[in-house]
Design a protein around this nucleic acid. Sequence first.
DNA 1: GGTAACCTGTCATCAACCTGTCAGACCTCT
DNA 2: AGAGGTCTGACAGGTTGATGACAGGTTACC
Lengths: 222, 222
Amino acid sequence: MRLLIVEDDPLIAGSLTQCLAPLGNTVEVFHRLSEARAALAHSQFDLVVLDLGLPDGSGLALLTEIRNRGNATPVLILTARDGVAERVQGLDAGADDYLTKPFSLPELQARVRALLRRSQQRTDNRLRFGPLCFDQISGDVTLHGERLDLPPRELGLMEGLLLHAGRIAPREQLLDRLFGFGEVGPNALEVYISRLRKRLSGSGVRIRTLRGLGYRLEDDSE
Amino acid sequence: MRLLIVEDDPLIAGSLTQCLAPLGNTVEVFHRLSEARAALAHSQFDLVVLDLGLPDGSGLALLTEIRNRGNATPVLILTARDGVAERVQGLDAGADDYLTKPFSLPELQARVRALLRRSQQRTDNRLRFGPLCFDQISGDVTLHGERLDLPPRELGLMEGLLLHAGRIAPREQLLDRLFGFGEVGPNALEVYISRLRKRLSGSGVRIRTLRGLGYRLEDDSE
DNA sequence: GGTAACCTGTCATCAACCTGTCAGACCTCT
DNA sequence: AGAGGTCTGACAGGTTGATGACAGGTTACC
């Protein structure tokens, strides 16, 4: 397995490496967010151990970024502060597990093993974007943890958008997905976009129109 | 629960059915490998009881087949010969448990229950949702501690809903569970949903319709 | 063996919801 | 300002689901 550790304290980084390498893993350590970002953009890891408090920003931002790109690599968060809010925030952002410092190395090992095992068995069936989560097996869509009961067409559209989360979902592709070769009026897609927007309003996520191209899921702030 | 029994001896098949059906299970019996193969390809079961010595081949072949397809349905093997080699071979092929003939019916029941429980990652034999509780051993359903005497079909439906408590119980799956391959009118399921709703009215639990998808148990407040 | 109670599945009718169209308002780029 | 593209509320039709009533069958208990 190939592990990425993002941790600025050299002492902690060292013991993490010594603790995780013996399990047959290849471990790469980065001390800054920017380095880790570059690494994650260029290559594939089986697991990321991510410290939240880094010199050049919060690990949460990086986590959100990679999840919005559709990257489902398991992420274990390390945080110095113990607090429910912090942990909820991390898990909501797409972390798979967390550990507060100080932690015992055997416990870290156990959690890493569990995450690797889990991620290998079930290729993550969930599509996420910000507070949105779509379970491709059950067909459930949740927004901030609350279920959205979407009728079939809206569900199909939501999936189409999430498959391109953070990138453009081309108009043609969405039309194909929703209506196949069925003859349908020229603005049926817009109607369903409108319906989804209504459901998402005030949620922190919105659907941006890219004129002539398609649609894109975005953070409300962008 | 929906069980598949593959057993060529009609006598044994009969007692298996009588022993496993009473708890609200739907039991389908096939006497030949080819029939069972077709059934497994076409639909979903919660457990398979598989005799190894069948007229048109060994059950081991079927077991290997379905495991190679990634089907993880629990399988309990029945074998007339008692031998370590046989049993190892079966377990290696992906069986979850085995029993050598002759066997006691209560033991079979217990093993079946254990397998079903394990496959659903539960630790006891009860399914719960809010004030609802279903005891899979006795077949009792209680609501706020009071016993509900449900007729078999309603019991089967209740179990089907409870197995997915809080999540969608897909329509197709409920139909399979209740009626198996039996021909039944197109709205029989709705009739039983309606009957259960009547019993649950005012209890704090309700059955929600997910149009085109299935049904879901919910708190009344949702 | 007979009877009553009950379970089961079908049907007809009614209600709820999803779907796609349209029209007019709105936006954005030229 | 104009044109093409987009948005959205309203609406009608169709599909799916809900429910009460009923008939046939089964079970249990005299």
